[in-house]
Computed example of a mutant assay.
Amino acid sequence: MKDKNTAVLEKILSEISIAQGLMGSHDMDSFLEDEMVKRAVCMTVINIGELVKNLEMDFRSRYAQVPWREIAGFRDVAAHKYQTLRMEDVYVTVKDELGPIAEEIEAILEEGARLTK
Results as ranks from 00 to 15, higher is better:
M1T: 12
M1C: 08
K2D: 15
D3W: 12
K4H: 15
N5A: 07
N5R: 02
T6F: 08
A7V: 15
A7S: 14
V8E: 01
S14N: 13
S14E: 14
S14R: 10
E15H: 10
L22G: 01
G24W: 04
S25P: 04
S25C: 04
S25K: 06
H26E: 10
D27I: 09
D27K: 03
M28F: 06
S30I: 10
S30Y: 05
L32Q: 02
L32I: 06
E33L: 14
E33I: 10
D34Q: 06
D34E: 12
M36S: 12
V37I: 15
V37D: 09
A40Q: 09
A40Y: 07
V41H: 02
M43P: 07
T44W: 05
I46F: 04
G49C: 06
E50D: 14
V52G: 03
V52L: 06
N54T: 06
E56G: 13
M57A: 13
M57S: 13
M57C: 06
D58E: 11
D58N: 08
F59G: 03
S61Y: 10
A64I: 15
Q65W: 10
P67V: 05
P67S: 04
P67F: 02
W68S: 09
W68N: 07
R69T: 15
I71F: 03
A72C: 08
F74Y: 14
F74N: 10
R75Y: 02
R75S: 01
D76Y: 07
H80N: 11
H80M: 04
K81T: 10
Y82P: 09
L85M: 13
R86T: 08
R86C: 07
M87Y: 06
E88W: 01
E88A: 08
D89I: 12
D89C: 09
V90N: 00
V92P: 03
V92R: 05
V94L: 01
K95Y: 09
K95S: 14
E97Q: 11
E97K: 11
P100G: 05
I101L: 03
I101A: 01
I101T: 02
E103F: 01
E104R: 09
I105G: 00
I105C: 01
E106G: 08
E106R: 13
A107Q: 14
I108C: 04
L109V: 12
E110M: 02
E110I: 02
A113H: 11
R114E: 15
L115S: 09
L115I: 08
T116K: 13
T116C: 11
T116S: 15
K117S: 14
